[in-house]
Protein backbone atom coordinates (compact mmCIF):
# COMPACT_ATOMS: atom_id res chain seq x y z
CA UNK A 1 0.00 0.00 0.00
CA UNK A 2 2.56 2.56 1.17
CA UNK A 3 6.24 2.09 0.64
CA UNK A 4 8.56 4.85 1.85
CA UNK A 5 12.10 4.09 0.90
CA UNK A 6 15.11 5.79 2.44
CA UNK A 7 13.40 9.17 2.89
CA UNK A 8 15.63 12.09 3.75
CA UNK A 9 14.43 15.64 4.21
CA UNK A 10 16.88 18.42 4.68
CA UNK A 11 15.84 22.04 5.25
CA UNK A 12 18.19 24.88 4.26
CA UNK A 13 20.81 22.45 2.89
CA UNK A 14 24.35 23.72 2.68
CA UNK A 15 23.76 26.62 5.07
CA UNK A 16 24.74 26.96 8.70
CA UNK A 17 21.02 26.56 9.53
CA UNK A 18 20.80 23.15 7.91
CA UNK A 19 18.21 20.88 9.56
CA UNK A 20 18.01 17.19 8.77
CA UNK A 21 14.37 16.56 9.68
CA UNK A 22 14.25 13.02 8.30
CA UNK A 23 17.28 10.85 7.94
CA UNK A 24 17.01 7.83 5.64
CA UNK A 25 13.70 6.62 6.91
CA UNK A 26 11.97 3.57 5.40
CA UNK A 27 8.66 1.88 6.11
CA UNK A 28 6.23 -0.43 4.37
CA UNK A 29 2.54 -0.43 5.25
CA UNK A 30 0.12 -3.08 4.06
CA UNK A 31 -3.51 -2.47 3.17
CA UNK A 32 -5.77 -1.81 6.15
CA UNK A 33 -2.89 -1.40 8.57
CA UNK A 34 -3.25 1.24 11.31
CA UNK A 35 0.12 2.66 12.27
CA UNK A 36 0.65 4.92 15.24
CA UNK A 37 3.75 7.12 15.24
CA UNK A 38 5.17 8.39 18.47
CA UNK A 39 8.00 10.82 19.01
CA UNK A 40 8.84 14.02 20.78
CA UNK A 41 8.56 17.56 19.45
CA UNK A 42 10.80 18.11 16.46
CA UNK A 43 11.36 14.40 15.86
CA UNK A 44 10.14 14.79 12.27
CA UNK A 45 6.61 13.38 12.57
CA UNK A 46 4.85 16.18 10.69
CA UNK A 47 7.60 16.25 8.08
CA UNK A 48 7.07 12.52 7.52
CA UNK A 49 3.35 13.10 6.90
CA UNK A 50 4.09 16.14 4.71
CA UNK A 51 6.28 13.98 2.48
CA UNK A 52 3.61 11.31 2.13
CA UNK A 53 0.90 13.88 1.39
CA UNK A 54 3.13 15.78 -1.03
CA UNK A 55 3.12 19.09 0.86
CA UNK A 56 6.89 18.71 0.81
CA UNK A 57 9.15 16.73 -1.46
CA UNK A 58 11.96 14.55 -0.08
CA UNK A 59 15.58 15.53 -0.58
CA UNK A 60 16.27 11.87 -1.22
CA UNK A 61 14.28 8.66 -1.33
CA UNK A 62 11.15 7.34 -2.95
CA UNK A 63 7.48 7.02 -2.03
CA UNK A 64 5.18 4.45 -3.59
CA UNK A 65 1.47 4.65 -2.89
CA UNK A 66 -0.97 2.00 -4.07
CA UNK A 67 1.67 0.70 -6.46
CA UNK A 68 2.40 4.11 -7.99
CA UNK A 69 5.59 6.12 -7.60
CA UNK A 70 4.26 9.41 -6.20
CA UNK A 71 7.57 10.91 -5.07
CA UNK A 72 7.22 13.99 -7.29
CA UNK A 73 3.43 14.01 -7.71
CA UNK A 74 2.06 17.38 -6.49
CA UNK A 75 -0.05 17.49 -3.34
CA UNK A 76 -3.38 18.34 -4.97
CA UNK A 77 -3.05 15.37 -7.33
CA UNK A 78 -1.96 13.01 -4.58
CA UNK A 79 -4.93 14.22 -2.54
CA UNK A 80 -7.10 11.83 -4.60
CA UNK A 81 -5.52 9.03 -2.60
CA UNK A 82 -4.78 10.83 0.65
CA UNK A 83 -7.09 11.97 3.44
CA UNK A 84 -5.60 14.26 6.01
CA UNK A 85 -6.47 15.76 9.39
CA UNK A 86 -4.21 18.42 10.85
CA UNK A 87 -3.29 19.30 14.38
CA UNK A 88 -5.23 22.57 14.48
CA UNK A 89 -9.00 22.22 13.98
CA UNK A 90 -8.86 25.37 11.87
CA UNK A 91 -6.54 23.86 9.31
CA UNK A 92 -8.83 21.19 7.93
CA UNK A 93 -11.95 23.25 7.30
CA UNK A 94 -12.82 26.54 5.60
CA UNK A 95 -14.07 28.64 8.50
CA UNK A 96 -16.09 31.19 6.52
CA UNK A 97 -18.05 28.51 4.70
CA UNK A 98 -20.92 26.40 5.96
CA UNK A 99 -20.69 22.83 7.25
CA UNK A 100 -22.55 21.64 4.14
CA UNK A 101 -20.28 23.58 1.79
CA UNK A 102 -17.18 22.16 3.46
CA UNK A 103 -18.50 18.64 3.13
CA UNK A 104 -19.40 19.16 -0.51
CA UNK A 105 -15.82 20.24 -1.20
CA UNK A 106 -14.68 16.96 0.32
CA UNK A 107 -17.35 14.99 -1.52
CA UNK A 108 -16.16 15.71 -5.03
CA UNK A 109 -12.48 15.68 -4.31
CA UNK A 110 -10.54 17.00 -7.28
CA UNK A 111 -13.57 17.08 -9.59
CA UNK A 112 -14.96 20.57 -9.29
CA UNK A 113 -17.44 21.24 -12.04
CA UNK A 114 -20.17 23.76 -12.76
CA UNK A 115 -22.84 21.79 -10.95
CA UNK A 116 -24.48 23.47 -7.97
CA UNK A 117 -22.49 22.38 -4.91
CA UNK A 118 -24.99 22.11 -2.08
CA UNK A 119 -28.12 20.36 -3.36
CA UNK A 120 -30.98 18.89 -1.34
CA UNK A 121 -30.00 15.36 -2.38
CA UNK A 122 -26.44 15.82 -1.25
CA UNK A 123 -27.55 17.49 1.93
CA UNK A 124 -29.73 14.59 3.00
CA UNK A 125 -26.96 12.12 2.22
CA UNK A 126 -24.47 14.22 4.19
CA UNK A 127 -26.93 14.62 7.04
CA UNK A 128 -26.82 10.86 7.59
CA UNK A 129 -23.03 10.92 7.72
CA UNK A 130 -23.14 13.77 10.23
CA UNK A 131 -25.67 11.99 12.43
CA UNK A 132 -23.19 9.15 12.86
CA UNK A 133 -20.66 11.52 14.41
CA UNK A 134 -22.98 12.31 17.30
CA UNK A 135 -21.78 15.90 17.49
CA UNK A 136 -25.10 17.50 16.61
CA UNK A 137 -23.67 18.82 13.37
CA UNK A 138 -26.62 17.53 11.35
CA UNK A 139 -28.67 20.38 12.80
CA UNK A 140 -26.07 22.99 11.88
CA UNK A 141 -25.38 22.24 8.23
CA UNK A 142 -26.12 25.81 7.11
CA UNK A 143 -23.95 27.42 9.75
CA UNK A 144 -20.46 28.70 9.17
CA UNK A 145 -17.76 26.47 10.53
CA UNK A 146 -16.34 29.40 12.49
CA UNK A 147 -19.32 29.13 14.85
CA UNK A 148 -18.48 25.53 15.78
CA UNK A 149 -16.44 24.38 18.77
CA UNK A 150 -12.94 22.97 18.28
CA UNK A 151 -14.21 19.44 18.81
CA UNK A 152 -17.01 19.86 16.31
CA UNK A 153 -14.62 21.34 13.77
CA UNK A 154 -12.19 18.49 14.19
CA UNK A 155 -15.01 15.93 13.94
CA UNK A 156 -16.05 17.57 10.69
CA UNK A 157 -12.43 17.50 9.49
CA UNK A 158 -12.17 13.76 10.22
CA UNK A 159 -15.39 13.10 8.33
CA UNK A 160 -14.17 15.23 5.40
CA UNK A 161 -10.87 13.39 5.27
CA UNK A 162 -12.56 9.98 5.14
CA UNK A 163 -15.60 10.84 3.01
CA UNK A 164 -14.10 9.68 -0.28
CA UNK A 165 -12.43 6.51 1.01
CA UNK A 166 -8.80 7.60 0.70
CA UNK A 167 -6.13 4.98 0.07
CA UNK A 168 -4.37 6.32 3.12
CA UNK A 169 -5.50 8.47 6.03
CA UNK A 170 -2.97 10.75 7.73
CA UNK A 171 -3.72 12.05 11.22
CA UNK A 172 -1.31 14.56 12.70
CA UNK A 173 -1.83 14.85 16.47
CA UNK A 174 -5.40 15.68 15.57
CA UNK A 175 -6.64 15.62 19.15
CA UNK A 176 -3.70 17.43 20.73
CA UNK A 177 -5.34 20.84 20.84
CA UNK A 178 -8.64 19.60 22.27
CA UNK A 179 -9.70 19.23 25.88
CA UNK A 180 -9.65 15.61 27.17
CA UNK A 181 -13.37 15.05 26.74
CA UNK A 182 -13.43 16.26 23.15
CA UNK A 183 -10.18 14.48 22.39
CA UNK A 184 -11.74 11.19 23.50
CA UNK A 185 -14.82 11.83 21.39
CA UNK A 186 -12.78 12.63 18.28
CA UNK A 187 -10.66 9.52 18.81
CA UNK A 188 -13.84 7.45 19.06
CA UNK A 189 -15.12 8.93 15.81
CA UNK A 190 -11.77 8.32 14.14
CA UNK A 191 -11.68 4.70 15.22
CA UNK A 192 -15.27 4.18 14.13
CA UNK A 193 -14.71 5.64 10.65
CA UNK A 194 -11.38 3.88 10.14
CA UNK A 195 -12.83 0.50 11.10
CA UNK A 196 -16.02 0.97 9.13
CA UNK A 197 -14.15 1.92 5.94
CA UNK A 198 -11.14 -0.29 6.62
CA UNK A 199 -8.73 2.58 5.94
CA UNK A 200 -4.97 2.30 5.91
CA UNK A 201 -4.03 4.87 8.53
CA UNK A 202 -1.04 6.66 9.97
CA UNK A 203 -1.75 8.43 13.25
CA UNK A 204 0.90 10.67 14.70
CA UNK A 205 0.53 11.26 18.40
CA UNK A 206 2.29 12.82 21.29
CA UNK A 207 0.40 10.64 23.71
CA UNK A 208 1.85 7.21 24.52
CA UNK A 209 -1.44 5.82 25.79
CA UNK A 210 -3.15 6.77 22.56
CA UNK A 211 -0.42 5.14 20.54
CA UNK A 212 -0.73 1.97 22.57
CA UNK A 213 -4.54 1.81 22.58
CA UNK A 214 -5.07 2.42 18.90
CA UNK A 215 -3.80 0.70 15.80
CA UNK A 216 -2.06 -2.57 15.08
CA UNK A 217 1.46 -1.28 14.69
CA UNK A 218 3.55 1.34 16.47
CA UNK A 219 6.75 3.05 15.42
CA UNK A 220 8.89 5.42 17.37
CA UNK A 221 10.43 8.35 15.52
CA UNK A 222 13.52 9.90 16.99
CA UNK A 223 15.68 12.56 15.36
CA UNK A 224 14.44 11.74 11.89
CA UNK A 225 14.68 7.95 12.04
CA UNK A 226 12.48 5.10 13.24
CA UNK A 227 14.07 3.58 16.32
CA UNK A 228 11.42 1.00 17.18
CA UNK A 229 8.74 -0.90 15.27
CA UNK A 230 6.21 -2.94 17.27
CA UNK A 231 3.83 -5.14 15.32
CA UNK A 232 1.16 -7.84 15.66
CA UNK A 233 0.92 -9.69 18.98
CA UNK A 234 3.63 -7.57 20.53
CA UNK A 235 1.66 -4.44 19.75
CA UNK A 236 -1.47 -5.91 21.32
CA UNK A 237 0.43 -6.66 24.52
CA UNK A 238 2.27 -3.35 24.60
CA UNK A 239 2.15 -1.35 27.81
CA UNK A 240 3.61 1.98 28.80
CA UNK A 241 6.27 0.18 30.87
CA UNK A 242 7.36 -1.92 27.92
CA UNK A 243 7.51 1.17 25.76
CA UNK A 244 9.73 2.90 28.30
CA UNK A 245 11.92 -0.18 28.31
CA UNK A 246 12.25 0.16 24.54
CA UNK A 247 13.35 3.71 25.06
CA UNK A 248 16.04 2.90 27.52
CA UNK A 249 17.28 -0.07 25.48
CA UNK A 250 17.92 2.40 22.69
CA UNK A 251 19.47 4.93 25.01
CA UNK A 252 16.85 7.53 24.18
CA UNK A 253 16.68 10.00 26.96
CA UNK A 254 13.78 12.17 26.13
CA UNK A 255 12.29 13.98 29.07
CA UNK A 256 9.47 15.44 27.11
CA UNK A 257 8.28 12.15 25.73
CA UNK A 258 8.61 10.40 29.08
CA UNK A 259 6.48 13.08 30.64
CA UNK A 260 3.58 12.25 28.36
CA UNK A 261 3.39 8.73 29.77
CA UNK A 262 1.75 9.72 32.97
Amino acid sequence: MLHANNLTKCFFPGTPNEIVALNGLSIELSEGQFLTVIGSNGAGKTTFLNLIAGSLFPSEGKITLNGKDVTTVPEHVRAQMVGRVFQEPGMGTASGMTVAQNLVLALNKGHKGLKIGVTQDRKSALREELEQLGLGLEERMNERVTHLSGGQRQGLAVLMATLTMPKILLLDEHTASLDPKNARKILEITEQLVTEKNLTTIMVTHDMNQAIDLGDRLVMLHRGSFVADVNGKKKEQLTVDKLVELFSERNIVDDELLLTMT
Partner: peptide, 22 residues
Protein backbone atom coordinates in the same frame (compact mmCIF):
# COMPACT_ATOMS: atom_id res chain seq x y z
CA UNK B 1 -21.19 25.71 -7.94
CA UNK B 2 -18.53 23.17 -6.99
CA UNK B 3 -15.92 25.20 -8.86
CA UNK B 4 -17.09 28.45 -7.27
CA UNK B 5 -17.02 26.89 -3.80
CA UNK B 6 -13.47 25.66 -4.46
CA UNK B 7 -12.51 29.20 -5.44
CA UNK B 8 -14.00 30.56 -2.23
CA UNK B 9 -12.21 27.90 -0.20
CA UNK B 10 -8.93 28.89 -1.88
CA UNK B 11 -9.29 32.34 -0.34
CA UNK B 12 -10.51 30.94 2.96
CA UNK B 13 -8.08 28.11 3.69
CA UNK B 14 -5.59 27.18 1.02
CA UNK B 15 -4.12 24.22 2.91
CA UNK B 16 -7.57 22.68 3.32
CA UNK B 17 -8.60 22.96 -0.30
CA UNK B 18 -5.28 21.60 -1.57
CA UNK B 19 -5.83 18.59 0.67
CA UNK B 20 -9.21 18.25 -1.03
CA UNK B 21 -7.50 17.87 -4.39
CA UNK B 22 -7.76 21.38 -5.81
Amino acid sequence: TELGLALRATGDNEQMIVAQGV
